[in-house]
């Protein structure tokens, strides 16, 4: 089985982003970029399936500008067999990303697609579900446990009520939650080895993906600030303050 893994590059999760004063976007120049944390988990899970002999090949897929190659090399250094780079300078929204994946699925015929449950930049939480709909295959979102046997995936999902388990016939789309696994660190020799692994470059325009129905972002704003709080010196003072506000 072949596994396709979505591997998005985002502003690092530790960066406190700033909105541009003119409301046209957020400041990304000179800001540290990293793999979307959920995508690292997706790649780790795919690699573990390969190590168990369930998958033969793990392919990382990135959609973005020319310099995304360096990011994809990180995925190769972590252990992916090869990478596909769909090149576009434009921002790609979830529906478009799902359509790109659908095109790649037609070509690659994977047994499984693993994506992160959301990207920490747009926080959309849509691409996996949209892809499963376009592909007309099962989806198992927010996965915290995955077992594959007899042509089906048994997936434990983190839902509001607790932990739900579902069975999905393969091929299927899985999206990862934080507790699925602990991604491995990249080792120096693997970075060297990754340099000789193949990256297929595909021009976005050559895929013939329809993009006209994207959402338009007209303004960016900083969130409303909470007013400065007060410090109290002991438990009695805290209780008094809460009683005064009618909260206790």
């Amino acid at each position: 089985m072949k596994i396709l893994v979505g591997y998005k590059r985002v502003v690092d999760y530790n960066v406190r982003i700033q909105v541009k004063p003119d409301g046209t976007g957020v400041v990304t120049d000179g800001v540290k970029l990293s793999a979307n944390p959920f995508d690292d988990i997706a790649l780790e899970e795919a690699l573990r399936l390969r190590e168990k002999g369930i998958a033969e090949e793990v392919v990382v897929v990135g959609v973005g500008p020319a310099d995304l190659t360096a990011h994809l090399r990180n995925g190769l250094a972590m252990g992916a067999n090869r990478a596909i780079h769909v090149v576009t300078a434009d921002a790609v929204q979830p529906l478009t990303a799902a359509r790109v994946f659908q095109k790649l699925i037609d070509k690659e015929q994977p047994g499984l697609v693993i994506l992160g449950k959301q990207a920490i930049d747009d926080d959309a939480n849509q691409t996996g579900q949209m892809l499963a709909a376009l592909w007309d295959r099962p989806q198992a979102t927010f996965a915290s446990k995955l077992e594959i046997a007899n042509g089906k995936a048994t997936v434990t999902r983190e839902v509001d009520a607790g932990l739900e388990t579902i069975e999905a016939e393969l091929p299927a789309v899985i999206t990862t939650d934080l507790r699925l696994n602990e991604p491995r660190f990249i080792k120096l020799p693997d970075i060297m080895k990754a340099k000789s692994k193949p990256i297929d470059t595909i021009e976005f325009a050559s895929l013939g993906v329809d993009t006209h129905d994207q959402l338009t972002t007209t303004h960016y704003a900083a969130p409303g600030k909470r007013s400065k709080g007060v410090m109290v010196k002991d438990a009695a003072e805290l209780v008094a303050a809460l009683k005064q506000k009618g909260l206790l």
Binding site: L95, L131, A133, Q139, Q214, L215
Partner: peptide, 22 residues
Amino acid sequence: TTFGKDVAPRVAALLGVAQVSD
């Protein structure tokens, strides 16, 4: 919620439209 996040994007894709989350 996890319910809406799971099902709504699948509906949007079937309708061929983008989704506004949250």
